[in-house]
């Protein structure tokens, strides 16, 4: 149903730490790998060995530069569905194929209903929906619904593939509807923010901003230089070091 469900208590989503993401694409490829055999399979690749390979991915890693010159920053930026609380990608869907689950807020596509009109992808500000032109249906991040509830997996493995694989642990998964959850606390502590809040989609996923630099541009308390003890000329250093020996 493309009417949004009433806001639920549980809002599952991701928190992505831009301070430590090294842009390794591990999350993107592991996502592709998991989902290639999962509930949205296949993530079709067109001309995979051709001139213009073009595949379906649910997670893509961009790199931005912010600011100029040496004080600027390079920021790696993974982008996937934010499982918004009020997303138009659901309401624009003419068939009901695009829906938001009442019980946990996950936004999914029911491929059996989808007519492939692409409108939902137009309505998503974040580019989180990718059309599988071979299958003729819209596909998107499932928040690994086939992992997080999958009792065939060990409990520790019931997290999204992209979270499990991230080598620097820049990705966190949890219930952002619960203010006491680890992810909510993290968001509170680090000033997690919404992408394009002006769209009013109220994304569930949050991004943690890069921490301030700790170099000459910011370091007030840092030592400036060491006080010289040794006189460099004329063998002035000879003898000094042994004073330091404690034995």
């Amino acid at each position: 149903m493309t009417s949004l469900p009433p806001p639920g208590a549980k809002r599952l989503g991701l928190v992505i730490d831009l301070d430590i993401c090294v842009g390794c694409h591990a999350c993107a490829v592991n996502c592709k790998e998991w989902n290639s055999g999962g509930m949205a399979a296949p993530l079709t690749d067109l001309q995979p060995y051709g001139v213009e390979p073009d595949g379906v991915w649910f997670n893509r890693v961009h790199t931005f530069e912010a600011g100029e010159g040496a004080t600027g920053r390079t920021v790696h930026f993974p982008r996937s569905c934010l499982h918004c609380a009020e997303p138009d990608c659901v309401t624009v869907c003419p068939t009901g194929a695009s829906y938001k689950r009442a019980e946990d807020g996950i936004v999914l596509v029911n491929e059996d209903l989808c007519i492939g009109c692409k409108l939902c992808s137009w309505a998503c500000p974040y580019g989180a929906r990718e059309f599988d032109s071979d299958a003729g249906v819209m596909k998107k991040c499932t928040l690994c619904a086939d992992r997080i509830y999958n009792e065939a997996l060990e409990e520790v493995d019931r997290v999204p593939a992209c979270v499990a694989t991230c080598p620097v642990s820049a990705r966190h998964f949890g219930d952002l509807g619960d203010p006491q959850s680890e992810v909510s606390l993290l968001v509170a502590a680090r000033g997690g923010y919404d992408l394009m809040p002006e769209m009013g989609y109220k994304p569930t996923n949050k991004y943690l901003p890069p921490r301030p630099r700790r170099d000459q541009t910011t370091c007030g308390a840092a030592p400036v230089a060491l006080a010289p003890v040794v006189v460099a000329e004329a063998d002035g250093f000879l003898g000094w070091i042994d004073r330091l020996l404690s034995r």
């Binding site: 296949p42 067109l46 001309q47 995979p48 051709g50």
Partner: peptide
């Protein structure tokens, strides 16, 4: 031959 479409994994889903 190089496949022009790769539907890897489709069979795992039973499609």
């Amino acid at each position: 031959e190089r496949p022009s479409v790769l539907r890897y994994g489709v069979k795992f889903r039973g499609l």
